[in-house]
Design a protein around this nucleic acid. Structure first.
Lengths: 120, 120
DNA sequence: TATTGACCTTGAGCCGGCTCGAAGGTTTTC
DNA sequence: GAAAACCTTCGAGCCGGCTCAAGGTCAATA
């Protein structure tokens, strides 16, 4: 599969895919003439990348994790450490998000009262 | 209260506070010699700003909302629209975060099995 | 009163994450 | 076999959100 098709299938731009490759998240096969040729495993990999980055995990962290995976068995503790660190950060984000949701709900549902009570 | 104290109290840097003022989130009083003088209401305002931005609401959106608030009554629908838009985006983020949390939990708890089953 | 430290402004720089344009090679389709 | 559609690299640019440095002012303390 060429870059355009992959881009369509996962909802990223060709440029973004090339950028991800450039920063080391990716290394697809190439045809003899140099054209990228992605396989199904690449799609799985990309879905994980997208899932992580959409949750705010930095591409650099994702890269480190994937590099460990690529390096093969023997570094499970390191991988686990990254996963756990990421989970912790996500939990913090989740807390903040919930707090903000509450604030938004409060402002939205009690709008008139807020108008009179609180300037912000 | 001067900028240094405020910075300490809310956990931002002086530079960040000046930056927020520059982009229009803020307009503290000034002493006769030009030194910023923040009041308690400013702290409330800042806490809202921090709460929102920590949840990923763009500063630009926060600015628009606060501008409406500053403008006084009469634009409640507009404010509400911003709040509702923000809530919707937060909900989407929340969904993604939960999905990623599940994935992380799966990888963390079943690490060995994953090792054998799934390369990523 | 001299120094220290916190404040001021302006403007530039940095980082993450893309995004675009130019100039050219390849492949598919008519 | 030519045009269209796709691919390549490289480098520059953009945006949001800070962050820092330079050069100057203000206020309090020794």
């Amino acid at each position: 599969m060429k870059i355009g098709e992959l881009a369509k299938r996962v909802g990223l731009t060709r440029d973004t895919l090339r950028f991800y490759e450039k920063i080391g998240l990716f290394k697809p096969q190439r045809s003899s003439s140099g054209i990228r040729d992605y396989c199904d495993e690449d799609i799985d990999r990309l879905r994980v990348i997208i899932c992580f980055k959409d949750s705010g995990i930095p591409l650099e962290d994702i890269k480190q994790y994937l590099a460990l995976v690529d390096h093969g068995p023997g570094n499970e503790e390191e991988r686990l450490a990254i996963l756990i660190k990421s989970k912790k950060r996500l939990q913090e984000t989740l807390e903040k998000l919930k707090k903000t949701m509450d604030l938004l709900d409060y402002k939205i549902s009690h709008y008139e009262e807020i108008e009179n009570k609180c300037k912000i």
